[in-house]
Design a binder for these strands. Structure first.
Lengths: 202, 202
DNA sequence: CAATATCTAGAACAGGAATTCTAGAAAACT
DNA sequence: AGTTTTCTAGAATTCCTGTTCTAGATATTG
């Protein structure tokens, strides 16, 4: 019942993604509106605030990205190989979907939780849970001797996601194509980074 | 002649650095003023605009950082070792001076040049020149077979600065201490990243 | 000491952004 | 058809920020 939506939520988020690509992370709601040709009222009817629009965009990008990582990370190969493959896949994902990747750079998870609308706090806070669970499984398989070491998850996250994301980020921000040769750099440096864990005492 | 400065330019930039640490990169001039207890007029008497304050802060941080890298990079050791040492030194610099490091994240060099006050354009545009010259010297020494390859500088910059900076960045942004173990991760992964260049055709 | 230059002080101004509000259009339901 | 619900439309409002402006304080110069 009721009138059909002229602009779906996803279309609005797409517009926000475009606006961010053009005007940077400080993109204005007016700029989002201009991007899709919608009046501000329609957007406020769907989202509670500008912050919520940006937050929803960020969360959608993270979810899609995690979806891709799950595809890669669910393989049955050796855990070490899977981890390296995930790192390379991250680079490829960013190369193919640069605007999605750009949207992921909107917030840092920490600073985010400081100023979230309440009704999004839980959802935003737990956004990494599933992914971290997968990562922890692979990590303990790869580094059984660090099973109870609290550095394990931060370490593996850094070596796989952090390293790759850090290398790709400048290209994403400046909207320059991610060069192909970066893949082999990521592959080798990720493998080397993981190998550091082999020298640690359990 | 004239009255003494109650607030030096450096003090104002320090205040801006604090404001950014507290309120993020969108910190307001009013927040900068509050940080040092100065009225806006005093700041506008020294700097032409808010953008110029932030730009000057960014440039000061970059210069100080480059100064540190020059100390490390001017050693007489093997070029490959020097490059790896520079990467590790970057991490250590960020650990010891996290607010300086945070100020460096204010802009990307690309997006910067889009909206610089004219009288700062030259200075801002050439800020990396000296450092790139050093890097190019080390790069050609380490990879003589890539002397005329245009990928050389981007590649080495990525493997040394980009990789390290990418790994450290999340800690800097979230103002979490950079863990000690990151140094060995950076050391090994930087070395591995550089080794990729050995496989390239000149 | 007068004159001048430099800086501090903070009120006043202008513009823009987020948000709210009211009216109206379009579909679904009875 | 009439009623209700959901959404569009965009003008109006409020708040806040960057910037300007004028007055006054403090040092230097002759």
């Amino acid at each position: 019942m009721g009138r059909h939506q002229l602009y779906t939520s996803d279309q609005i988020l797409d517009a926000a993604m475009d606006a961010v690509a053009i005007h940077g992370r400080a993109a204005t709601l007016a700029q989002v509106c201009a991007q899709i040709g919608a009046p501000s009222g329609s957007i406020y009817h769907r989202f509670g605030s500008r912050d919520e629009v940006m937050m929803r965009l960020w969360m959608r990008s993270i979810h899609r990205f995690h979806g891709r990582l799950f595809e890669v990370g669910s393989g049955q190969a050796d855990a070490g190989d899977v981890l390296v493959t995930m790192a390379v896949a991250t680079a490829q994902y960013c190369r193919h979907l640069p605007r999605e990747a750009l949207s992921m750079t909107l917030f840092s998870h920490e600073r985010l939780m400081a100023s979230v609308p309440d009704h999004l706090r839980d959802e935003a806070g737990g956004i990494n849970d599933e992914f971290f669970a997968l990562l922890l499984r692979l990590a303990t398989e790869r580094f059984p001797h660090l099973k109870d070491d609290e550095r394990l998850l931060p370490f593996v996250f850094t070596a796989v996601v952090g390293l790759c994301y850090g290398l790709v980020r400048p290209y994403i921000i400046d909207q320059i194509p991610v060069p192909e040769w970066l893949d082999s750099v990521i592959h080798d440096s990720c493998r080397a980074a993981l190998a550091v864990g082999d020298t640690w005492q359990g």
